[in-house]
Write a protein that binds this DNA or RNA. Structure first.
Length: 282
DNA sequence: CGCGTTTGACCCGCGC
DNA sequence: GCGCGGGTCAAACGCG
């Protein structure tokens, strides 16, 4: 699958365009990861628990592209609003949320045309994404939030399906994808997209995380467990591209060396160099 | 009965 | 333009 997948990933990377140019990664620095996650409102579960879970890698995607996409989307919405979206004036909403906007008819809209999926002209907007690679025997890892599964798809070149989850909070548009690595079935790849607009909920089951931790959910990333192969997938896009051939990315290779990052997470330089100031100030 | 999962169909973007 | 693959919807179903 390697070549095919690599090509796919790379093309995905490039097709996502400039989008991920500013992608940032931080591995191996627990404090940093924690603070970043905290800034984004994430409360991640301990990554080692009775279920034998263990996070091997962590990454974060910047939202640079989101802004671009939103601008594009806004423009498209404005252009199209003249002819198409009479029934939905909020198509070109400039809010940062994707608002899947189910057309269940509850808003009085007659379901005369059960057009599944997004409305025409409404672009898929990607939000901030975090990806984790976790060694676990269970696919869906507890992270302090409640999720509702809304889809599952077979992944090309992988025997394992990918599951799609949405936060059950109606106001929260956070999604996550869960899939197993085809290279190492023991590894679960979890990708979060978006930011929670609420706190974690108490889980009656499991409760492997503490609500009294310094970050609410008690993130416990262990830097010693960063898993190198993870980089090939998780960072699939940016990193592999960066390393394999010359990318159009405006990133300095020295910042993107996974091994370097993994093994020698310098305390000061990494985040300062990688994380955009805007993000840090959030 | 409410909530979550399953699953087939649909939509959309992208490469060829 | 067409086909493929990823992502999403929503009805049906299961479970507590």
């Amino acid at each position: 699958m390697d070549d095919d997948k690599k090509r796919k990933l790379e093309s995905e990377m490039t097709s996502d365009s400039s989008s991920w140019v500013d992608s940032s990664y931080f591995f191996g620095n627990e404090e940093r990861e924690r603070s970043i996650l905290n800034e984004f409102g994430w409360n991640l579960s301990p990554l080692q628990n009775e279920r034998n879970q263990e996070t091997t890698s962590f990454m974060e995607f910047d939202d640079h592209q989101i802004e671009l996409e939103q601008q594009r989307s806004d423009l498209a919405g404005i252009e199209k609003s003249g002819d198409a979206s009479t029934s939905n004036p909020s198509v070109s909403s400039s809010s940062s949320d994707e608002l899947p906007e189910k057309s269940t008819g509850s808003d009085g809209k007659p379901p005369e045309k059960p057009s599944k999926g997004r409305k025409k002209g409404q672009k898929r907007i990607r939000q901030q994404r975090f990806a984790f690679m976790t060694k676990s025997d269970v696919d869906h890892l507890e992270d302090g939030y409640r999720w509702r599964k809304y889809g599952q798809k077979a992944v090309k070149n992988s025997p394992y399906p990918r599951s799609y989850y949405r936060c059950t909070n109606t106001k929260c548009t956070v999604k996550k994808r869960v899939e197993r690595s085809c290279e190492d079935p023991a590894i679960v790849i979890t990708t979060y997209e978006g930011q929670h607009c609420h706190h974690t909920v108490s889980f009656p089951r499991g409760s492997v995380f503490s609500h009294e931790g310094p970050f609410g959910g008690g993130l416990n990333l262990s830097s010693s467990q960063i898993y190198a192969p993870a980089m090939q997938y998780t960072v699939s896009g940016p990193l592999s591209v960066t390393q394999s051939h010359q990318p159009q990315l405006e990133v300095r290779p020295s910042q993107m060396q996974p091994q370097q990052t993994l093994q020698n997470p310098s305390d000061e330089g990494l985040l300062g160099d990688i994380v955009p100031p805007g993000m840090r100030n959030r």
